[in-house]
């Protein structure tokens, strides 16, 4: 038997640097973070967690974040689906419309907040338009008007983050062979029936991914609210920022961050579970 060349595990050599980077910058900080949140100068402690829970801003932040997700996500998905289905009808200037609709993909949440600040500010464009129309302006972003403040954040987020759902849905639609839709039409299905029984079921994998991604990202909403409202509409990640940058307490900041992480993971796991169950029962 002749000797074989030693198999150089080229693949291992190639992925090794990325493993090093991810261990150093993902795994290691996670471990340090848990340490920061749960150990004080005298060993393990729940003091930081308690301090987080006792903070008057914490529960409103939880409530606002949850409310934002519950309101934003369904509206956003309906909006994105509408946009995608409109494009599917090949309107005139579809290319231009699509370009404008996806611009926000590359716009940061801070920039989006500042863009909408020009609209919602007391002396901003929305009130200017209302004034032109002879209607009294509204103090949209005043801390006394929680509802309008929340609305402003939802609109800004809708504007900024729907494009992500849109590209996922459009790509998903492109992956559905036209034959199915045409076959259904030949057999007499109406537009609504085709949507319900042909298009949406095949779009489901795309929608699932978009849903998980968007939920996790919505949990991290922060700079939009910061730019529009400061701390008047507290959100979870905004509180981390406050505790770290303003109150200079990294331990409590990490504790809140871990809450965000836990909820993110729960959301991802929950969705996957839910969707898998549905696949099985179908």
């Amino acid at each position: 038997m002749p000797r074989r060349r030693a198999r150089i595990p080229a693949a291992v050599l190639l992925i090794a640097p990325s493993l090093v980077v991810m261990t150093a910058l993902f795994a290691w900080p996670l471990v340090v973070g848990v340490g920061q949140a749960f150990s004080g100068p005298d060993g393990p402690t729940l003091a930081y967690a308690r301090r987080m829970l006792d903070d008057p801003y914490f529960w409103p932040a939880v409530r606002n974040t949850a409310l934002l997700i519950v309101v934003l996500i369904p509206v956003q998905f309906a909006f994105a689906l509408t946009m995608a289905l409109l494009l599917r009808e090949r309107p005139r200037f579809a290319g231009f419309h699509f370009y404008v609709w996806v611009i926000p993909l590359a716009i940061s949440d801070l920039a989006a907040g500042l863009v909408w600040l020009s609209v919602f500010a007391d002396r901003g464009y929305l009130n200017s338009v209302l004034d032109h129309l002879g209607v009294d302006g509204v103090a949209w972003l005043s801390y006394q008007n929680t509802a309008t403040m929340f609305l402003a954040v939802v609109v800004a987020e809708l504007w900024r983050s729907t494009s992500l759902v849109l590209v996922i849905v459009v790509a998903g639609l492109q992956g559905i062979p036209k034959d199915y839709d045409e076959a259904a039409a030949v057999f007499g299905a109406t537009y609504r029936q085709r949507l319900r029984h042909v298009v949406l079921p095949q779009l489901r994998p795309s929608l699932q991914v978009a849903l998980i991604l968007r939920t996790i990202l919505a949990l991290e909403t922060f700079a939009v609210a910061q730019a529009l409202t400061g701390r008047s509409l507290p959100l979870l990640v905004g509180e981390t920022y406050q505790w770290y940058n303003v109150l200079q307490n990294p331990n409590v900041a990490t504790a809140i961050a871990l809450v965000v992480l836990a909820v993110s993971m729960l959301a991802a796991a929950g969705y996957l579970r839910l969707l898998r169950d549905r696949t099985v029962t179908q």
Partner: peptide, 13 residues
Amino acid sequence: ALPIVVLSVPLAR
């Protein structure tokens, strides 16, 4: 799916 905020604070440390 890892929130940036979870990494940032410990990384600062």
